[in-house]
Design a protein around this nucleic acid. Sequence first.
DNA 1: GTAAGGCCTTGACCTAAGTCAATGGGGCTC
DNA 2: GAGCCCCATTGACTTAGGTCAAGGCCTTAC
Lengths: 229, 229
Amino acid sequence: MDNLISIVANTPLFGGLSDEQLAHIGGITLEKTYKRGEAIFWEGDPGIGFYVVASGKVKVYKTSSEGKEQILHIYGPGHPIGEVPVFSGSRFPASAMAIEKSRLLFFPRKDFVDLISKQPSLALNMLAILSVRLRQFTVQVENLSLKEVPARLASYLIYLTEEQNSGEVVSLPISKGQLASLLGTIPETLSRIFNKMTLHKLITVQGSRIQLLDREGIEDLSSSGRLGE
Amino acid sequence: MDNLISIVANTPLFGGLSDEQLAHIGGITLEKTYKRGEAIFWEGDPGIGFYVVASGKVKVYKTSSEGKEQILHIYGPGHPIGEVPVFSGSRFPASAMAIEKSRLLFFPRKDFVDLISKQPSLALNMLAILSVRLRQFTVQVENLSLKEVPARLASYLIYLTEEQNSGEVVSLPISKGQLASLLGTIPETLSRIFNKMTLHKLITVQGSRIQLLDREGIEDLSSSGRLGE
DNA sequence: GTAAGGCCTTGACCTAAGTCAATGGGGCTC
DNA sequence: GAGCCCCATTGACTTAGGTCAAGGCCTTAC
């Protein structure tokens, strides 16, 4: 079983730090475990520190007044979550929940800010992480506003092939219901679109295994093409 | 007329720096002016530095393959733009264009990264700015995905009253066409919604002057209420 | 085995909002 | 002043995708 320090040492945020510094970081962290479905924090809670996922899988999401959910990110091991209030404002802009049994490291805000002030490379690492997230958000806004649901699903499948690079078969890392929420739609609509894509011989679906039959066709669709009739 | 240094000294990004440091920053910057409608950079261009708006107004936006536009931000004096490639990746994730005659300062990536490595407070300022943007993006995604257009417009009007705090009258800082693009819709739809809100006695509209007649009603609407019939 | 609950799918229906086309007005230029 | 162009508006129509309701299937519990 991996200890705190070795987890810390392997997350990109702490890349390039000396052993001594890693030990110090290990000293300020707190480990917590969460069951599947357990809340990590809620939108609007005061954020007195941030988390790094050590194992498991976590969703960060918003909920509408009618209860509809939009997932903003899904993060696995190595990703920080809830870092926005560390640097601005004081409340979490969204909620976070474990979608499987997860272990998280917690870093108190003040200790971390002290550390970052002394460690330019840590600051630059964090800047890089936030920049990547900004980039991802531009894509999410683009998807929601400028693309229809079939195109969003196609983009997601292409993203998965790159993530998993397992040839033409990918396996959905989350339930179809959660995927609907990530893509900004509902399970009924997602189901119908899987159907249409199957009819068009772009994919085959067996449970969470998706086979991509026509990579080029899927790419066309993802860059905002249409799915005929 | 304000010179470079005084502009630099008054942008939040450079808050808390010594005169000497400000002078140094003034030394690495380059001033550029843009006419209304002139492109500053395009999505996908390599980003060899970032900009700070000194005067005027700039939109940052994405375009779909069919030519529809989604505005991500509109920035005025003091705001940095195009900073994502400074810290991650190398290409701009979106395009930027002056929507009025504007003056911008350009900071070369390398010089700025050198500076930030030596200046923890500069790093923390930048972290704060990026965090605010992440927070704004969570709101934009929430709006696009979980709210209908009338609720988005209502939120925007409330935001304007706070921004301008001029009592119950606000003036739109951008054309209605651009506002439509910011809210993720089209001018026709926006126009109809202005109408409906007027019929419901929530607002009156004269050109770009909007009077808020029923602040509470508008707040209800913004938090995802409905506009009857 | 049987019961129960979660997840997914399917069908019928509805509606928010986009498309297309035409018109009106305000401010330019010449 | 005439002609233009840009912007906003209005009307008629279409459609993507959401809502509601029902049913199937698979897993877990006992």
